[in-house]
Write a protein that binds this DNA or RNA. Sequence first.
DNA 1: TACGGACCTTTC
DNA 2: AAAGGTCCGT
Length: 293
Amino acid sequence: MNEFEISVSGEELDLDHCVMSGQVFRWTRHGDGRWIGIDGDHWYAVERTETGYAVQSTGSEAEFRKHFRLEESLADVVAEIADRLPESASVAASGFRLMRPSGPRETLFSFLCSPNNHLLRITSMVQALSEFGEPVFPNEARRFPSLEVIAGIEESALRAKGFGYRSPRIPGAARALLERGGESYLADLKAGPYRTAFDQLITIDGIGPKLADCICLFAFDHGLAVPVDTHMWQAATRNFFPEWHGSALTELRYRAVGDYLRSRLGERAGWAHLYLYRENQVMGRTRKYTESK
DNA sequence: TACGGACCTTTC
DNA sequence: AAAGGTCCGT
């Protein structure tokens, strides 16, 4: 177990905000103020200090920094986005950054749990999936299961755990990936261009354009990927495509929203999407609260 | 192509 | 009722 201190301001890294934002699903905040997280082959326990974060981990400081993308200055990124996309300038981006999960496998299967679902239930489903992995960490935490193991899970077992209609898609996707070369196929999609990865992913049953873009952005580090979900769609129709306000998100419009952000922001499009997504999510909560009064 | 509906279950 | 959608029919 390694111990190290990360010296960083809350403006540059707000751990709470990052790990609870729906980019990753294996971090939890404990009552004692610590965060416990698993990413790929490593386990982390983190505490806020006066100057940054104190970390215990099976991994190294370099790996922690990579996970939170600390090689990028958030101040610089936000300034760049605000400059090229003034519509997003109002977003309070303090400490909220694009993360970098280390294993594409875990991201892919986590988002396979996400359609038509809540963040809270997605998290509990990802937890249930990780129960199939080997117990190598403290506190009974487990590594995310291999493709072989996931491929062998019975649909009925997932149904019994409350996965509902997503149940067959999970072992199904694992089998499809294995047929295409397994982990090395995923590694090739990460190494290759965004467009190729997107086109490949949507041929897997249960993965549509939105999931493909989440996997491309989070797992493959493809900055051109713009996941357009219900929140992003509302933000887009409010800020960029008012003529589409209230209308359905079709395949053509999905492409148009992504192309628009890509043309304005290039490789920062995906990162910017985080702020548009979150702004709308927060506004949605406020709206509900107001309506209930 | 575009639009409607169904889909498992939990949580707001 | 709605949730970080996708798939399948018209």
